[in-house]
Design a protein around this nucleic acid. Structure first.
Lengths: 229, 229
DNA sequence: ACAAAAGTGTTCCCGATACACCCATGT
DNA sequence: ACATGGGTGTATCGGGAACACTTTTGT
């Protein structure tokens, strides 16, 4: 016989997404106000259930797309949460994912449809179930990961200034960084291209825009280089 | 209504355990020879299904206990694997855990009952499903984690020599370490107690036994100290 | 006497950090 | 002219890596 597994122990498997964005100074997360039970009216992460024909990564992408309209987003599986009574309605295991998006890319209509809102991580409201814990874990993972892989760029527009990049890392790490040391480190890795173009919004002098050169990074990585911040 | 979740999307949730041990020179994993379908006769990780009244950590502990007879083992959740056809018999999502045990503690009868066997990680056979990938991930996580937290001791007997500890880290990292630098680093952290007792098995001269001082470590940690190797 | 593992400090180097002034521009 | 943020280089410090000889004891 092929199928000797018992059917009695099946469970509902949810996927919840911690969606990170970065806005000028603050690291933010996108939360929804639940218009359904349980916990209707409270803030929570965007989530959904795993479907039969998809894997977890696909479910996470689908859920993210539902709320933001964006495809091809950097996402990573975080952890699975399984406390027996974590969801009062029914036994549910949740696999948390975090996503990094360029905050300008979100879709206004969808945000409205789901009563979603961006919150600075420092000022986010209490969330339902164990979602607060998930967010804490996600921030901790984000700190680790952004210091070891060049994924911070996912949170910025394609063209960004050094200052924006520094502000981003300051927001993620929640500490001030030295301007010269930061730029020296970044330039030392030689994975950005400096454009002729300047961003004139932030100062009178203007500041040069840069782009992450993914090809160059991949070549260097294949050669033994590793990103380190 | 309380329950507005659909029942159609429930899935089987498995827990698979990568059980690490250390034996003189080698990092090992405990594998079982499946005496049930699918893939009967092939090697695999020890696993089981999540039950309704337990969370994932508890399921992992239960599964480990079933095979080894040991309780209170260091375990950590690794990752969830969800490829749609990963298990040919039925859609199953698996949450992998890794465990660190003192290899001397295992129970011979249980090992025999499950046709289990210890393999050096370097010489382990091919495993069913995606278990090879799980093992690779587990080793990678183990490397990271043992360099940041004093969990390597879980793989040793309570009393161990500096040389054993070094061999352990060499096996985990798969690289030779310098004897003096290693001992200097360990002693610099001041989290071991050196016993008067010597282990006379490894050499004519004998070498002093040490123990991990968990209280001391916890006090230092609360004071801002962090383990680093 | 010799073989086999244990034990023990110092030097050197590189990467991380600290730090201050001039520039360009809009008002 | 001045206010605002942009851009740049060097000196110091500390942790990590390299490195070799003596000790003990069973044979």
């Amino acid at each position: 016989m092929i199928n000797n597994y018992s059917a009695e122990d099946k469970v509902l498997l949810a996927v919840d997404c911690i969606i990170f964005g970065f806005d000028k100074e603050d690291l933010k997360i996108l939360l929804i106000k639940r218009d359904f039970e349980p916990e209707k009216g409270k803030w929570s992460l965007m989530g959904g259930f795993l479907q039969q024909q998809e894997n977890l990564d696909e479910a996470a992408s689908r859920i993210l797309r539902t709320l933001t309209g964006i495809n091809n987003v950097y996402m990573e599986q975080l952890h699975s949460y399984s406390k027996v009574d974590r969801d009062p309605a029914e036994r549910t295991i949740s696999v948390a994912y975090y996503a990094l998006i360029n905050i300008q890319d979100h879709n206004e209509e969808l945000i409205e449809k789901y009563s979603a809102k961006w919150f600075s991580v420092a000022k986010a409201p209490d969330l339902i179930f164990d979602h607060n814990i998930m967010v804490r874990h996600a921030i901790s993972r984000l700190r680790y990961k952004t210091s070891k892989e060049p994924i911070g760029f996912e949170l910025l527009p394609p063209k960004f200034t050094m200052r924006q990049l520094q502000k981003l890392y300051e927001a993620i790490l929640d500490e001030k960084l030295d301007k010269r040391n930061f730029i020296n480190k970044i330039n030392g890795m030689d994975i950005l291209v400096k454009l002729k173009e300047k961003d004139m919004n932030s100062s009178r002098k203007g500041s040069f825009l840069h782009m992450f050169d993914e090809q160059k990074y991949n070549r260097k990585k294949a050669d033994g280089f590793s990103f380190k911040l």
